[in-house]
Amino acid sequence: MDAVLFLVFAAIAVVCAVNLVIQTHPIASALSLIGVMGSLAFVYLQLGGQFIAAAQLVVYAGAIMVLFVFVIMLLNEGKERKVKMRLWVRWAGLPLLALFIALMAFIVQRVLPAQQSVKFGAFTSGDAQSIGTKLFTAYLLPFEVTSVLILIAIVGAIVLARKEID
């Protein structure tokens, strides 16, 4: 059951990622990226990361991607122009990419002992309480630094985008 669920969501993630790369319209790419993020949230759940799955949905899929879609719709640029690729890039690129991925999968498979398997529910310290405890004790300084970073980002974004587009 675990493996079937993993394979389903992994397949959705990979298909969406491929779609992100091959689509020429940014809004199609954005929707594919949302698909990747949603299926990754399920994979996190399987790994016991309840909090991180919810954060993935709320922050990534629910906030960051809305911002992307909003900007794409605001600029409304349309499709990307076709670029001329060199002949060998056009014919050898895809097989080389597939070869590279296969090689990497092979190496990962060999380096890691395959006996270890992931079972749903075996990892329990991914709930909101344990994450929160750790975030506010061991990782308090990084947490505060990120809040300052976000403040800087807000100010920067407002300064950059303040003028009206005509």
């Binding site: 949302i34 909090f51 799955a53 949905l57 709320v58 899929a61 906030a63 809305v66 909101a128």
Partner: peptide
């Protein structure tokens, strides 16, 4: 166990329907 967060996240996704329709 993370019901509130999930509801918040999922209902936040509804905006794509409206934005995409537009």
């Amino acid at each position: 166990s993370i019901g509130v967060l999930l509801v918040l996240g999922l209902s936040g996704m509804g905006v794509y329907g409206v934005a995409l329709a537009g």
